[in-house]
């Protein structure tokens, strides 16, 4: 398989994997409106993934025929959906990151600029969706508050990796991006009457190696399901 060395690959993998995770909500979301919302966000991400992966090679081969360790996505996006609060916490962390990163890339002369400029407007809606739900669940009932706090705490350790330099994106000011991200997340969580997590985000055995191809245990099973049809029926069409 020919894979071009380009930062489009890790960013495309983020979009592809999160799209698949959100797609798993189809038929299971708490209300119909959310079913539709999560599917729409998944569709936006799939659109990003198709364009980005096509810059790195054949989109179908890359999505369906790579092994686990060849994927370069963040460990955050491969985390299982959990309860609705976990999915919202993952969305809040990731869409805030993606909006800041794409906003930066859109203003550069990188090959990623056209996609970043296009997608950042959609991602603003993804972030708003996650922000509104975080407020509603955090500042909601005792049960929803407990669950939302548990979710932001559980996923916190995967957020350090978001700001580790990506090969080919050396000009991105990662430290400044992190500060903006932290300020936004803090603002949302405080507004939602939640506590900003304080646990470690670097150096732990799990967090931070997705970009190098090391993934967490649930990822392999997710890939098996995602790739099964294509691998079992090569070349199948509708």
């Amino acid at each position: 398989m020919n894979i071009t060395a380009t930062p489009a690959l890790p960013l495309g993998d983020d979009a592809l994997i999160l799209s698949h995770r959100l797609g798993e909500w189809a038929g299971h979301a708490p209300v119909l409106e959310e079913e539709v919302a999560l599917a729409n966000i998944a569709l936006d991400l799939l659109g990003q993934a198709r364009i980005l992966l096509s810059l790195a090679g054949d989109e179908d081969e890359l999505a369906y025929l790579r092994e686990e360790r060849q994927f370069r996505n963040l460990q955050l996006v491969e985390q299982p959906n959990g309860d609705f609060a976990h999915t919202i916490a993952r969305q809040l962390y990731f869409s805030t990151y993606q909006e800041l990163l794409f906003n930066h890339l859109a203003a550069t002369d990188s090959e990623l600029a056209p996609l970043a400029g296009k997608a950042v407007k959609e991602v603003a809606y993804h972030r708003d969706h996650a922000h509104q739900w975080t407020l509603r669940l955090g500042d909601g009932t005792d049960e929803s508050r407990t669950r939302m706090q548990r979710a932001v705490d559980a996923l916190w350790r995967y957020t350090g990796e978001l700001f580790e330099p990506v090969e080919g994106l050396e000009t991105v000011p990662w430290a400044a991006l992190h500060d903006s991200w932290a300020a936004r997340i803090t603002s949302t969580l405080e507004q939602a009457t939640l506590t900003v997590p304080e646990g470690p985000r670097h150096g732990a055995w799990t967090a931070g190696a997705g970009r190098q191809g090391l993934h967490t245990e649930p990822f392999g099973r997710m890939l098996a399901e995602m790739q099964h049809l294509h691998r079992s029926h090569p070349g199948a069409t509708w």
């Binding site: 959310e34 539709v36 599917a39 729409n40 936006d44 809606y125 969706h129």
Partner: peptide
Amino acid sequence: LSRFSSTA
């Protein structure tokens, strides 16, 4: 009612 409807 919802930020996302029948289409994106």
